[in-house]
């Protein structure tokens, strides 16, 4: 190994040691302490996209009385890393997953201290208190107030495809998501296809809450600084809720395939013409073939090598 490699390893080891020391330090744990106020803050920021307390199910279950329903250890593990518990085939987690439209709860990156604070809050929360005051968060109000039915699907489609801009400057949904009803070429492939998202999430209200809260890390990173307004959200969800887009026209696939084959054919013909002088057989083989044919008294044309 070279000198550079050794140094790099040493540097990584040093960084890792410092990081561990910081994470394990009691000061950090104490600062995040078991405080229901902090839990409330976290709930409003990270949970309201999918959950209410006493206001009914959205994408995820209503959390009223959840602390009585589940042991504290299970809640701690689940809130901290639901993806890991699902991967470990936790029976309660799997049952919840199936009950709630197979939409898994994302890992929100909460520390153990934050999870504890959240559980403390859930244990003391008054039903309905989860609804944040309008000025509390920059993200719009949660699903209960989302006027899904009032949105205009036409405007929503324009917003989705980027034909109209979001007011706060966010990227069009199509940049990352595909959906039926926006043409044969579809949209981006980074996020999941949204064709049946409203059905999967159990209704327009849940979908609107999800969009507003942006709970997944990727969505959060994109939308935190440029949130949707309530109207925009309603319009986009109305578009997604249209029955028409839940079916994709099958002939579009064939049209796409036809276009691809035509394009390929044009490229091949162009390449064949531009590089027509290239000799796949080289010089020697045609020379031999010519000589052979001349010897037999045949026209001097070179057969191609098979």
């Amino acid at each position: 190994m070279t000198n550079g490699g050794v140094w790099r390893l040493l540097r990584i080891a040093a960084l890792a040691t410092i990081a561990c020391a910081w994470v394990a330090s009691p000061a950090t744990a104490k600062a995040a302490g078991a405080d229901a106020e902090a839990g409330k803050q976290i709930f409003q920021e990270k949970c309201t996209a999918c959950h209410t307390i006493g206001k009914g199910n959205l994408v995820g279950p209503d959390l009223k009385g959840v602390t009585a329903l589940r042991p504290r250890e299970w809640l701690q593990q689940w809130i901290a890393a639901p993806d890991r518990m699902l991967a470990a085939k936790d029976p309660v987690g799997i049952a919840l997953l199936h009950e709630f439209h197979d939409v898994p709860m994302p890992n929100l990156g909460l520390s153990a201290a934050e999870a504890n604070a959240l559980i403390d809050y859930l244990a003391t929360a008054v039903p309905g208190a989860a609804v944040p005051p309008a000025e509390a968060v920059s993200a719009p109000a949660p699903a209960t107030s989302a006027p899904a039915a009032s949105g205009d699907p036409e405007v929503g489609k324009e917003l989705f495809t980027g034909a109209a801009r979001f007011r706060n400057g966010g990227p069009p949904c199509m940049a990352c998501h595909s959906v039926g009803g926006i043409g044969a070429l579809g949209g981006g492939q980074l996020g999941p296809d949204l064709t049946t998202v409203v059905t999967r999430f159990g209704g327009a209200a849940a979908t609107a809450a999800f969009v507003g809260g942006s709970p997944t890390p990727t969505m959060n990173a994109v939308w935190q600084r440029t949130p949707l307004t309530a109207d925009e959200r309603a319009n986009v969800v109305a578009f997604l809720a249209q029955a028409a887009i839940s079916e994709r026209p099958t002939q579009a696939i064939w049209r796409l395939l036809g276009l691809a084959i035509l394009g390929l054919a044009i490229l091949l013909v162009a390449a064949g013409w531009i590089w027509r002088r290239r000799q796949p057989d080289g010089v020697r083989l045609p020379m031999l073939a010519r000589q052979r044919n001349t010897a037999r008294g045949q026209p001097a044309t070179a057969p191609r090598r098979t």
Binding site: A271, I274, W275, R277, R278, Q279, P280, D281, G282, V283, R284, L285
Partner: peptide, 15 residues
């Protein structure tokens, strides 16, 4: 530039 990825005037291995 046009032929940079595909030089047409090369001897082949057979040559």
């Amino acid at each position: 530039l046009g032929n940079i990825f595909y030089n047409p005037y090369l001897p082949t291995l057979d040559d």
